[in-house]
Every structure is written in structure tokens, then in C-alpha cells.
Design a binder for these strands. Structure first.
Lengths: 152, 152
DNA sequence: GTACATCGTTAGTGGGACTAACGCAACGGA
DNA sequence: TCCGTTGCGTTAGTCCCACTAACGATGTAC
């Protein structure tokens, strides 16, 4: 950003929800990415590990669907996770197109770790809000997102 | 996105404010960009025109600071606006490093037009929320953004 | 068997934030 | 008056991310 100091951001801009969202998301993404990076973590790793933990093993394509990561990008994510022994990738004997991805013990431990890191980072992200306000914020975001997800 | 149908998005993911923000912002950006594109408009055009309207003429560097657009990107934006006769770009006689950018009559009309378009698009974006909830949402976003802007 | 869909993979697109470095002009001291 | 610093506009290029296209191999349906 470069609009520090004499903040002359026009009102029209400052008031638009779309702009508030992009700006805040930019900061939020930076905060989370940097926070995770400090622990050699990435958002995508977290997403995949969480998906494996909550819904069990699955093919890359299925992980894709669960996590919203494109299957073209999933290749690299799974590779990185496998390199770190957080996940096992085994060809599916029943369907030779598929790899079955399974979370490892290290993977579960790692997920717990990332969860703690994310808790802290979100505390920082939502710092100015009270507990009630945080809930409200989440609720509003969820309703909006749900609305635009169904509509898509 | 690709997580339609059987929504198996893990809870951990669905609940994180950071993720809600990115996802919603992605939809929001698409909505706004496509809406503006239908009228041959762009976010950046709006930002610059709004800044000129509210604070008067300025150099490209100053517009940069007002709008948060990088001065390297401002070059192209001003060029596009000038091509459409929405602004005038004149060398500053008092400081030969500068161009003075001024909004034209067409520019003002265009800004009003874009404002109407954006009003509609934001109505769509915030559709599921009541008026009170929209205010609250904006207020929460603003507080969060302010907090993370000062801290930067 | 033949058409079609799905899987993993590679490559590449397009947009947006952001950096580096340039030549030029202005400003602020010694 | 020269000199270092700062600000300007511009060009080029980086990185990240969502997303598309196309591929060969495999599975499924008719």
C-alpha cells in the first residue's frame, strides 16, 4: 500500500463493501501467509490436511473438490506434503487412474500445529473485535458467501 | 470454484475468517469486475475518477497515493482514461516532472454512471443482508481495515 | 465396442500487487 | 554553485493465484 500519511482516500472508495473486502483480504492473506511461512506452512497444505482429517483418505480429485484447490494445483500440493511425510500417496488398486492420499501421523500432528498457529493469527486479524462481534462478523460473512455460492 | 454439489468442505476451513474473506472477496471481485466490464469500466478507472472528483486535479503520483494504485500501474490507467476523454493530462508548468491530471465533463458523467452501476452491484453483493446488517458489516470491515492499516 | 467421463499431470493465461531501475527535474544544504 | 537527495513518470519484470486447455491412461454406460 502507499496511502499512508495524509489519507486522502475518497469517500466513494472507502465506503464500498467490495473495496473494503479486497483491502482487508489483502492484509489478511498477507498476515496468514507470512505467519504460516514462518513455520514452513502454506494455506493449501492446511486445507488438504484438514480435509483428510475430517473426511478421511481420498483421491487428488476428491481433495480438490473438498478444498476448492484446482486439481492442476493439487499435484504440487500433494507432492510437497508427501515430501514432508505428512501424507502418503498410493496408487488405488481398484481404480488405476487414482492415487489414494492418506494423512500420516506426522500429518495429524502438523495439522494440530497449524491449527494453533492459525488461531493466533486470527486473533491478530480480528483483534479490534469483541467475541460477540467476531461471531457476528463470521455469521455475516458466511451468509454472504453461502448466498453467492448457491447462486453460482 | 469446484466444490459444488456434495459440499464436503471441512469445518476447519469453513469457519476461518481468513478463508471466508478470501472466498467472498473472490466472488465480490468477479461480480464487480464483470459488472463494470459490461459497461467498459474498470475498478481502477473508478478509483481515479472518484479521487479527482473529490480532491481535484493532481499529479499521477498523488493519484497513486489517494487511490492505492501503484504509480507503475497508474501510467496505464491514466492513458486509458485519457484515450476515452475522461481526463486531461497536461504537463505541470510549475514542476516539469509532473503531469497534472484533470477530470473532464465526460469524466464526471462517467463517474456518476459508474456509481449507479456500483450501487446496483453492491445491492447484489449484499442481497442477503438487511439494511441494518449491511451497515454493521461495513462498520466491522472498516474497523478491521483501519486497525490493520495503522499497524502497517 | 464405441462413446463418453474421470483422473493425474503439464503447460500456460490473465490479473493484480509489488519491485527495480531508468532519466529527468526539483529541493536543500554546504 | 555544485552535490546529494528526493520525487516524478515510465518501462520492465517478478510473484502469486485462480483458472483453462489439452494430454494419455483408465474406467463406465449403452
Amino acid at each position: 500500500m502507499s496511502d499512508d500519511g495524509a489519507r486522502k482516500t475518497p469517500d466513494r472508495l472507502r465506503r464500498r463493501a467490495s473495496r473494503l473486502l479486497s483491502q482487508l483480504t489483502m492484509r489478511s492473506d498477507r498476515l496468514i501467509n507470512e505467519g504460516l511461512a514462518r513455520a514452513d506452512g502454506r494455506k493449501w497444505h492446511y486445507a488438504v490436511l484438514a480435509s483428510l482429517q475430517e473426511y478421511g483418505p481420498g483421491s487428488q480429485a476428491e481433495l480438490s473438490r473438498r478444498s476448492g484447490i484446482y486439481r492442476s494445483d493439487m499435484v504440487g500440493v500433494v507432492k510437497e506434503l508427501a515430501e514432508r511425510d505428512l501424507v502418503e500417496r498410493v496408487p488405488d488398486p481398484d481404480d488405476r487412474r487414482r492415487n489414494v492420499i492418506t494423512i500420516s501421523v506426522r500429518g495429524r500432528r502438523r495439522l494440530r500445529h497449524l491449527d494453533r498457529i492459525l488461531d493466533d493469527l486470527h486473533d491478530e486479524l480480528l483483534a479490534p473485535l469483541s467475541t460477540a462481534e467476531r461471531d457476528q462478523f463470521l455469521q455475516l460473512l458466511t451468509r454472504l458467501l453461502d448466498h453467492h455460492t448457491r447462486a453460482s
